[in-house]
Design a binder for these strands. Structure first.
Lengths: 215, 215
DNA sequence: AAATTTACTTAACAATGTTAATAATCCAAA
DNA sequence: TTTGGATTATTAACATTGTTAAGTAAATTT
């Protein structure tokens, strides 16, 4: 039935309209100004119409949450060119930092805000697909680093979580306005964060590299 | 004037009544259930009375925020007994973790939530006294570690911030329900976090200790 | 005793997410 | 073509939040 299809398509279009408006508000005016009523204003519908396309606000947030991970992936396009896994690890860290600096609202939603996780818990969903996938990428690099002797051999998941914790710690201190209390000049925050990453990377690098195929 | 004093004292008593109620709600029922009206219910006053003792909700939060740092200090009482600065550093990490696990709501307010920082920004206050003080303690241990060759010599503030970032990263991933997506058994979270700290401590320990006074 | 300050309450406002009831529109079958 | 049921949208409303305005009762000062 062609008419059914067109209706479905129109429905998806309005869904996209809502999501785009939500994204716009979210990115430009921050989490706090992302309200159902403001979305409705933007798309020129009444607030209740939004509920015909999304169960509740959390469902919209869940959608933006996923979008965030897609955006983050784009920041990692520059990785394929890097052969050395340890340099790749370093670059991943820098990309992570850059993403958090440029898209703080998305970062919030992906790694700090509770709402998206609440939603998943409510659905009895133990999986966190986008997060899993992102961490998996990191884990593969970590394993490669271990195989080539750049990192001390250890439980890969533990090391992966540790590395993630470090950069997440840095960026959430920046985003939640704690780091600026110690790095008073705004333009010094990014250099400080990068220097911190350098320090970390330097510290975790295996001191006696036992590379399998020479070096 | 004795009557003025007594009045002032009574005023402080009600302030304390409010703060205690706020703390109770906050710790037992979480941030979301900390509302002016629920505080008022607990102390059996009308909601507006609260505003006679506190300018707004943020002022109450600011107070709890400070309380949190006092509570955290108590967790560090076991440090004085430890002579070796590097062991002390490790223990500080463990204490930090323990505090975050046992007082997640306070941890939130101290290191994650934006509200308390917003308040300070509004008062044009660049200082974050409790945070400064806490980080200063850490920094002193870091410096001692460097002097005794346990840590590679480097800019102390940078290293201090980096170490803090690491443990903060860990604990905010726990508290904001991200880590549980990778460590599925609840009772394995604390061991994992501790193992991660061990890994970190082990990695930052200077590999060629040049201790000034032998060893 | 009268006036004034203090301590407190009730009523209300605006904003939020969300639901119920209702109107308008569209599409398929009679 | 018209009727009738589904779809799509809107208006009104509710409960909850922080917060303020206005009013009342009590205590203190004059």
């Amino acid at each position: 039935m062609g008419i059914q299809e067109r209706k479905e398509k129109q429905k998806q279009e309005i869904r996209k309209l809502i999501l785009d408006a939500a994204m716009k508000l979210f990115v430009e005016e921050g989490f706090d100004n992302l309200t159902i009523r403001r979305i409705a204003d933007l798309i020129e519908y009444s607030p209740t119409t939004v509920y015909l396309y999304f169960k509740d606000k959390d469902e919209i947030l869940a959608s933006l949450h996923e979008q965030g991970f897609q955006k983050m992936q784009e920041f990692n396009r520059n990785l394929i060119a890097i052969q050395n896994p340890f340099l790749r690890l370093h670059k991943m860290g820098e990309n992570y930092i850059q993403f958090a600096m440029e898209q703080p609202e998305y970062y919030n939603l992906m790694f700090i805000d509770r709402e998206p996780m609440k939603k998943m818990a409510a659905e009895n969903c133990l999986e966190w697909a986008p997060g899993d996938s992102a961490l998996q990428t990191l884990k593969e690099v970590v394993i490669e680093c271990m195989e080539q002797g750049y990192l001390e051999k250890a439980e890969p998941l533990l090391v992966t979580l540790s590395i993630w914790s470090f950069v997440h710690g840095l960026m959430s201190l920046v985003i939640r306005e704690r780091l600026e209390k110690f790095v008073h000049q705004k333009e010094m925050i990014l250099p400080t964060v990068k220097a911190s990453l350098n320090w970390f990377i330097n510290n975790i690098e295996s001191k006696d590299k036992k590379k399998p195929n020479g070096h």
